[in-house]
Structures are given as C-alpha cells and as structure tokens.
C-alpha cells in the first residue's frame, strides 16, 4: 500500500518534470519585467504585441534587433517546407507501407527493418551526408534541398504510422469487396483507402510537425537566405536570451500542440 502511494507520488513528480519547464516558459511570456526576465513583476501582453508589430512600451534594448518581418518570413519558409515535405513523404511512406503490408515479396522484411534506420540515425550524420552529397553533385542549397533532405527521414515516420493502421485493418473486408465483384482499383478506393485514412492523416500531421521543428538537418542544407523558424530562433538564442523568445515559444507551442493533439487523436482511434 505504502509502496503504491510512493509510486503514485513518483508518477506525479514525473509529470511535473515533463511539463513544468514548458509551463514556466508560457507563464513568463506574460512577465512585464523588461530588465530581469527571471523576476515576475506583473502581467503584460507586450511581448505578443511586439511580435505582431503593435505599439509597445518596451525599449529597443530589451528586444532582438530582428524585425517582425524577418520572423514572419521564417514562419512562411517553414510552412512552405513543411507542407511540401509532408505531402511528399506521406505519398511515398503510404505507398511503401501498402506494398509491404499487402504484397508478398522477398524484400518485405528488409524494407521493414530498413525504414527504421532514418528515424533513429543521429540527425547530424544525415545532415552532413546530405550537405556533402548536394555540393558534390552540384545542387545549389535552396528550399528544394531542404524539402528533399527532410523527406529522406520523414518517409519513415509516415511508413510506421500507416503500417500500424494497416496491420490492424481487417483484410477480410478487402476480400469481401473483391468477392462482390469490385475491381482492385474500386476495392482500394472504396475500402482500403477509407480504412487507413486516419493512419495517413496521422502520418501527414506527424511529418508536418517534425518538419516544422527540424533544426539539425535543415541547419546543414539550408544554405544562406533560407531561414526556417527553428533556425531563426536558434540564431536569436545564440545572441543572448531575451523575454521575446518566451512569447514566440508559447505561440509555437500552441501551434504544435493543436496539430499534435489532432494527430495523436487519429492515431489512438485505431484501438477502437
């Protein structure tokens, strides 16, 4: 009994450990203190006003020199990259998952193992390998190289998500459809695709989020002039810590949490 109580207490501490740091950032993004960001002295929305370009009482020295326009440009770049990468990865990952799950061929097991590699490989290794590769074949670093580079490992994430859904999807439904005279194309469109749609959607959202957040690989293959949001913030952090980051971080948090919640919701639906 005591042991169980201790375990519960520990479990609660575990969640405090996970969430307290994030919560602190959110709370202190409303801190009015411009001189010492670590000491709370009142509530303000100024940091958010600053980001969105409204009038504030903040002096210039308390903020980064970057204009809001630069921040927006970084957000735009990130969204462009994430949208392209996630759509491309979702198509490729889904195709691979379908092939491995629904066809018998000798390399199926090989594919399944191989798709794990990009996910757990240290990202710096992939980052520099891609950098060397692009330079060697004479491809200029651009948005295109970021999209291609991120796709190499995001395909794996989609593959795993869709495969999980396929594994739980009843093949007898597809057989019934074929028995009832549907062509393979019809069966795929009317039975298989709706059945695994939540997995595809989940994989797409997952790859979208990871792409939005990718720092390491993008850092090496972005070249100059293609600043994504993580790289922009990375640059800010390197120039010192100012409270503005709290507000940017909170907004990013909000954005990812909404997408992640939707994505995880679809992934968890497979249990039902």
């Amino acid at each position: 009994m005591i042991l169980r109580r201790l375990l519960s207490l520990y479990g609660l501490l575990f969640f405090v450990f996970i969430y307290a740091p994030i919560l602190l950032v959110v709370i202190y993004s409303f801190n009015a203190n411009t001189l010492n960001m670590m000491i709370w002295n009142g509530f303000t929305l100024d940091w958010y006003r600053q980001i969105f370009g409204f009038e504030t009482t903040i002096t210039d020295s308390a903020t980064y020199v970057d204009s809001s326009a630069q921040l927006y440009a970084a957000v735009r770049t990130s969204l462009t990259v994430a949208l392209s990468t996630s759509v491309f990865s979702t198509v490729c990952g889904t195709a691979l998952a379908l092939a491995v799950a629904r066809y018998r061929f000798r390399l199926a097991g090989f594919y399944r193992t191989l798709m794990m590699v990009p996910m757990i490989m240290p990202d710096i290794v992939l980052g520099i390998a891609l950098l060397i590769f692009f330079i060697t074949i004479g491809m200029n670093l651009s948005l295109m190289t970021i999209i291609v580079g991120q796709s190499t490992f995001l395909i794996s994430y989609v593959f795993v998500t869709v495969s999980a859904r396929l594994a739980e999807f009843d093949t007898s439904l597809e057989e019934a459809s074929a028995d009832l005279g549907a062509t393979p194309a019809q069966t795929f469109r009317k039975v298989t695709l709706p059945g695994i749609a939540p997995g595809i959607l989940g994989g797409w959202l997952l790859s979208f989020i990871i792409s939005m957040d990718d720092l390491v690989i993008t850092y090496f293959i972005a070249g100059t002039g293609n600043t994504t949001l993580p790289i922009h913030i990375w640059g800010m952090l390197r120039r010192g810590i100012k409270p503005e980051i709290n507000a940017i971080a909170t907004l990013m948090l909000l954005f990812t949490l909404v997408i992640a919640a939707v994505g995880l919701y679809f992934r968890s639906r497979r249990q039902k």
């Binding site: 994030i22 950032v25 913030i233 948090l253 919640a261 994505g263």
Partner: peptide
C-alpha cells in the same frame, strides 16, 4: 506530447 513541442523551446 512534449516530443512534438519544438526542441528549441
């Protein structure tokens, strides 16, 4: 869930 929160954040 925190896995999906930006690493830098």
């Amino acid at each position: 869930l925190p896995f999906f929160v930006s690493l830098i954040v």
